[in-house]
Design a protein around this nucleic acid. Structure first.
Length: 882
RNA sequence: GGGCGAGUGGCGGAACGGUAUACGCGAUAGUCUCAAAAACUAUUGACCGUAAAGGUCUUGAGAGUUCGAAUCUCUCCUCGCCCACCA
């Protein structure tokens, strides 16, 4: 494709503000970044380059630039290397900020969001990326969330989506659940009432069903994110035992924590993943077997899932038939259990308070007070308060091993949501239990670690089921209808057994019984009504819209009610990268064939904050889709790359309240897009966190000006464009080609730019420069600075294609070696001299040794000394041990 | 408390068993200029040598392995991120 309408008048001064918008417009008109799914058959294969989709907060900030720009440079490099690169983007458009803004400023969440999307899309334009916006997803549009609802119904059918109860932040005055960010100092942000923890019924996704599948096994491919040292032992599995044990470990684990025998199970087979030179890159693409996620993510997720195997033990209450069930990972210590501790929310405590006449009044008050206090504690307060607190319940249970009666205590150091909400305390063996025992003067008896109590084996997870319903307006409506008539007519009788049997599709609300009826797939989407009072009113906003709420039951036609809650936005973002491949697809959430063609994602860029949130949910959805037969692979992304953070110039996180926000718009206005892009790539390693530096970007700007001036001089014949290249010229060029390419391949953007600077320093110092050098330089720079390179490319070759359609230059190893190598001479490991040796002769140790001995400095050190040993590393170093 | 990671010039960082401080910023001196900015040139880890030559030290602290360690091992210190009473 030829680019027409070229103006190639050479301007003496680099003026990015003029050329950048020009080329952005030309690229758009010419469609040079259009992705065609079919064309990868002719190329080296597809390459799905994905960046976490942004939330449309209003303005693009440097956080966005830092996620997208290096990712774009990588994508451009991949494209020039012959891959059919798919680089889409969209917006994660539902969520609380829109509602907050709406309440604060009186703008409708939808209008606010869509306006932000429009603005940010424009701002994306100035970033100069190769994103193809024909493939996109905006999650707040019915054409997208329709498929959220579809997926939700599939999950409901499979029993993955269910109604359950969990503790939530509750405002007793507003009668509503509160988000953490809506709690200020333990009080509701609107009415100021004290927030309590309350059991609230809500929708859950049974992610725990997939817990085992989500654990990264030791057998999964483990590669350092940036495999610089392919045969280095450091990239093998960690020797220290992490908190979460792997499956095999857990099976064989015992209380004494045997050393992990499988620690050395693998550490080889990495060479093929070492980034590739130009000839073997394609082999790792599109193969599910090569899953390469950073260690910190894999271990973070495994710890979060927290699989532990143990036992359920029953402790009988006195002589009664009732008992308290505890979960323990160390049943062999049961002989040392001297008391039980239950969570304040435990049903034993609740029932205790219901039969208050059986215990003394004072005691009852104390327990009631303690439980009430615990419920008031927000998560933050519990974190701050590290001293153990608790109260004796007045009850005793029988230790099943010793037969002794032991007291039952209530304490909030036991969590209601984990295990059974009750533990047996073994103060002899457990530090927390000992601390508690010492504080309340409870007995500590030795355990022999060989008790064998009777109980059921049980696997427990730290991971909880995912609560997905929200009492908010700006989200996906849940496609369930509650019908009283269906329940009555279907079952005719009220029968407790049936209720249990049909529990999954039966619900009680406000004293009424309902059947849960799915919205038929053909009725989707259930559109979010526009005119709704979304200010907090004691119930979910959609619950106030009677017209929308009351519907005919799709089953019986009788009066029924919609579910008034909306889905967590993490639901939206758990599968958007599937929608990207076929955004207009009508027959399902995505085109299965297209997905098979383009997924898994080859590289997924994003922030470290999503280690145990978003990326885990996305993996969960993928495994669910696989079970539905929608996708043929287990992992949605073959590689994950996490970036760091750009801080404000003062070293703090950029925030409006600190007044340290650097705006991309202004930096672009002053230095241009290319300088901003290059700066972000250059200033620090991609995964690092470092402050913005205004003076450093002016240095980058200087670099681009020098690139520009090189051209100016060529055109004015100040420099001759010669044809022949010296060996040194060739060597410098091929070193740069190799270094920049490998660094782009491995996400070492900063050193790639440094290599370009080094080569420019070399080129600038020369009297003459070759056209080949100049063109190669522009190509190597083009992924970072697409505008200036395009402009200069066309001023040199006015009728040519876009530089971005050129191929990546190839290096030839034969140019990488210089004529002479310098060999460092060491005496006992200390550098004393450096000698030049002809390349061919550097292979001969005796020759190098002889040359080294000739050096005056070396002579002085060797005089009168006995040489024990001479170590020679070819072409690098010679060490005399004396 | 747990997990993960990081400590290298004045600053961002490079090197990841083989010449530590690449590249950039900043700083100093010079050229140009009425002057400034910009640009260009030179110097720039510390110390001794007031110049040159030369030497000594230096990658958070200490030990170890090695002919050779910023890099590998151990102990300790500091900082960052994530999670947090997980039985």
């Amino acid at each position: 494709m030829k680019i027409k309408n070229l103006k190639f008048k050479i301007k003496p001064r680099y003026f990015p503000q003029e050329i950048e918008p020009y080329w952005q417009k030309v690229w758009k008109e010419q469609g040079i970044y259009k992705f065609s799914p079919a064309s990868h058959k002719a190329s080296r294969g597809k390459y799905y380059n994905l960046v976490e989709l942004p939330y449309p907060s209003g303005d693009l900030h440097f956080g966005h630039w830092f996620s997208f720009v290096p990712a774009d440079a990588h994508a451009r490099y991949k494209r020039m290397s012959g891959f059919n690169v798919f680089f889409p983007n969209g917006f994660d458009a539902f969520g609380l900020p829109a509602e907050n803004a709406a309440i604060k400023r009186g703008v409708h969440p939808k209008d606010w969001t869509m306006k932000n999307i429009e603005n940010m899309t424009k701002q994306f334009g100035t970033m100069g990326t190769m994103i193809d916006w024909n493939f996109t997803a905006i999650t707040c549009l019915p054409e997208y969330y329709r498929w959220n609802q579809w997926i939700f119904l599939k999950m409901f059918e499979k029993g993955i989506a269910y109604r359950g109860k969990a503790l939530s932040n509750w405002c007793p005055v507003d009668q509503t659940v509160l988000a953490n960010e809506h709690i200020e100092n333990g009080c509701c942000w609107r009415c100021g009432a004290e927030v309590i923890q309350k059991e609230v019924e809500q929708w859950f996704l049974k992610i725990t069903d997939y817990a085992d599948k989500l654990i990264w096994s030791e057998n999964s491919r483990v590669v350092d994110r940036q495999p610089r040292f392919s045969n280095d032992a450091r990239s093998s599995f960690p020797k220290k035992q992490s908190q979460t044990r792997s499956l095999s470990e857990s099976l064989s684990s015992n209380f004494k924590n045997k050393p992990n025998k499988s620690a050395t199970a693998f550490n080889s087979s990495q060479s093929e993943l070492t980034p590739s030179d130009q000839n073997n890159q394609s082999s790792i693409n599109n193969q599910q077997s090569a899953v390469d996620w950073p260690k910190e993510v894999r271990e973070g997720q495994n710890n979060w899932i927290g699989r532990s195997e143990g036992m359920l033990l029953e402790f009988k209450i006195g002589e009664a038939k009732a008992s308290i069930e505890v979960f323990t990972t160390r049943p062999e210590t049961t002989d040392g259990a001297t008391f039980l501790v239950v969570a304040p929310e435990h049903e034993f405590v609740t029932s205790l308070l219901n039969i208050k006449d059986k215990i003394s009044n004072i005691k009852y008050k104390g327990i009631l007070e303690y439980v009430g206090g615990a419920k008031k504690k927000t998560e933050m307060e519990r974190k701050e308060d590290r001293t153990k607190s608790g109260i004796f319940s007045g009850a005793y249970v029988k230790n099943p091993v010793t037969g002794k009666d032991i007291p039952v205590w209530v304490s909030d150091y036991v969590l209601a949501g984990y295990g059974t909400g009750a533990i047996m305390a073994v103060p002899y063996a457990d530090e927390r239990d000992r601390e508690f025992a010492e504080k309340f003067d409870l007995p500590i008896t030795e355990t022999k670690f060989n008790a064998k109590p009777k109980g059921k084996k049980r696997v427990n997870y730290h991971l909880r089921d995912w609560s997905v319903s929200r009492q908010r307006y700006w989200g996906t409506p849940i496609p369930i209808i509650y019908c009283h008539n269906c329940w009555e007519s279907k079952l005719k009788i009220k029968n407790e057994k049936l209720k249990i049997e049909y529990g999954r599709t039966y619900i009680e609300m406000d004293g009424q019984e309902y059947a849960m009826v799915q919205v038929p797939l053909e009725d989707l989407p259930i559109e979010l009504p526009y005119d709704v009072d979304y200010t907090p009113k004691g119930k979910p906003p959609l619950g106030t819209d009677e017209e929308w709420l009351n519907v005919k039951c799709p089953k019986c036609g009788g009066p029924a009610k919609r579910d008034a809650e909306t889905l967590d936005t993490f639901f939206d973002s758990a599968w958007y990268y599937y929608r990207y491949v076929s955004p207009k697809y009508e027959k399902g959430p995505f085109d299965k064939l297209r997905v098979k063609e383009l997924l898994p994602v080859d590289v997924y860029f994003g922030g470290a904050e999503h280690t145990v949130g978003h990326t885990l949910y996305a993996r969960f959805f993928t495994k669910f889709f696989k079970d539905l037969g929608l996708v043929p692979f287990d992992e949605f992304a073959s590689k994950r790359v996490q970036h760091g953070v750009i801080l404000g110039p003062d070293g703090n996180r950029m925030s409006k309240s600190r007044g340290n926000v650097v705006s991309p718009d202004e930096v672009v206005k002053e230095y241009g897009t290319d300088a901003s892009r290059l700066y972000l790539c250059f200033m620090m390693p991609y995964e690092a966190t470092a402050p913005w530096s205004t003076s450093a970007i002016s240095g980058i700007y200087r670099f681009l000006k020098r690139v520009w001036d090189l051209q100016y001089e060529i055109k004015n014949k100040k420099l001759n464009i010669k044809n022949g290249l010296s060996k040194e010229d060739l060597s410098q060029m091929h070193i740069a080609i190799k270094k920049v390419g490998e660094d782009l391949e491995n996400f070492h953007f900063n050193t790639a730019v440094a290599a370009l600077m080094t080569w420019l320093n070399f080129l600038s110092a020369k009297k003459e420069i070759a056209k080949e050098e100049y063109e190669t330089f522009l190509k190597l720079l083009s992924p970072f600075a697409p505008h200036i390179t395009e402009e200069l490319w066309h001023s040199l070759n006015p009728s040519d294609n876009s530089i971005h359609l050129e191929s990546w230059p190839k290096f030839d190893s034969k140019y990488l070696v210089a004529d002479k190598v310098s060999v460092v001479v060491q005496i006992n490991g200390k550098v004393r001299d450096s000698i030049k040796i002809k390349n061919q002769k550097s292979k001969i140790k005796s020759y190098v040794e002889e040359e080294a001995r000739k050096s005056g400095k070396v002579k002085r050190y060797l005089e009168g000394k006995e040489i024990k040993k001479v170590i020679y590393v070819e072409g690098r170093i010679i060490n005399f041990v004396i």
